[in-house]
Amino acid sequence: MTVLARVSLAALRANLARSGADGAVVDARADGWGHGAVAVAAAAVASGARQVLADVDQLDELRAAGIPDSALTDAACPVVDPLAVFGLDGIGVPAMRLSGEVVTTKDLRAGEGVSYGYLHRATHDTRIALVSGGYGQGVYRALGERASVVIDGRRCAILGRVAMDVCVVEIGEASFGRGEDVWFFGDPAQGHPSVHEWADASGLSAAELVAAVGLHAERRSG
């Protein structure tokens, strides 16, 4: 079952240019806030950043990727606003998108329950989909009954408790095939839910949520 944290290098570069990274210091700690320290450092250097702030245990990885020592620092210093760099400030383009896929679909009859403890019980006959992506990939457990995903442009509420590697969503009369993309969050301009919806539902910050996803899901940059 596929769960991908997709990091857009084009979005990173655009956000860096907009946020004034030229000649400044860019924060790539915590593995680039979950976006990948190498990807963030490379984009920062290409955008004219003076230095990249990185964790000590990532310096060797960055050097191996061709980032020069002169561009690396582990000293505390003022940095470009990371929320702007990663498109989490409500202005830039979100650099990370999280997607899973439809695993299977089935009917759910009124009164039947889903997920751990049958927290959710259907009030009417409907249809549900089991989709890949759970707390093992950084999908916050409390999002059940509070957030939704997008499948082929349609909003589908997350039902019950989020499991380790999957969750259940209501699809109603929609017909989705196995393997169809399921968008947990991404760029609202492309019809994806916003990670800020997760923040509102969970009480965590958008930065905390994307960092957790980036450190647990399969990450791809491009």
Rank of each mutant, 00 (worst) to 15 (best):
R178E: 13
A110W: 05
V26T: 07
V182G: 07
M1N: 10
A174Y: 13
V45P: 02
V162Y: 08
P82A: 09
T123I: 07
G172I: 04
G23C: 05
L209F: 13
R109T: 15
V139H: 07
V162K: 12
G36H: 03
A201Y: 11
A76I: 10
S99R: 15
P94W: 01
T105M: 04
A157G: 06
K106R: 15
D187S: 01
V168H: 03
L59M: 15
R220G: 04
V102H: 09
V93L: 00
T73F: 01
A21V: 04
A211Y: 03
I128P: 09
A28Y: 03
I91R: 15
S132D: 12
A110N: 12
S132W: 14
D152V: 09
C77V: 15
V213Y: 03
G92R: 03
G87N: 00
C77I: 13
A64I: 08
V56A: 15
A10D: 08
C156Q: 04
R109A: 15
S175A: 13
A64H: 14
A174D: 15
V195T: 07
V25L: 01
A201I: 09
A46Q: 11
L143G: 05
D89V: 00
G191A: 08
A163T: 04
L130D: 05
G144A: 06
A211F: 05
N15G: 02
L204G: 04
I128E: 11
N15C: 02
A54Y: 06
E112D: 14
R219N: 01
D31F: 02
S148W: 14
F185G: 05
E145I: 03
A49V: 13
G177I: 03
G191V: 13
E61L: 15
R121V: 10
T105K: 05
G92A: 12
G144L: 08
V85I: 15
P82S: 09
H216V: 14
R219E: 00
L16E: 00
A54P: 06
P188D: 11
D81Q: 11
V102Q: 11
G186F: 00
A39G: 06
V131P: 02
W183P: 01
R161S: 14
L108G: 11
V40N: 03
D181V: 12
I128G: 09
T123W: 13
L16T: 02
R109F: 12
G136W: 10
D152E: 12
S47D: 08
D181N: 09
D27F: 00
Q190S: 12
V182T: 04
A64W: 13
V79K: 01
D181K: 08
S175Q: 15
V168T: 07
A37Q: 01
V40D: 01
G177P: 01
D125W: 02
R178A: 11
D125L: 02
A5Y: 02
G179V: 04
G92H: 06
G136V: 11
A174S: 14
R63M: 13
P94S: 11
G48L: 08
A217H: 05
T104E: 14
G191Y: 12
I128W: 08
E208S: 14
R50E: 12
V85L: 13
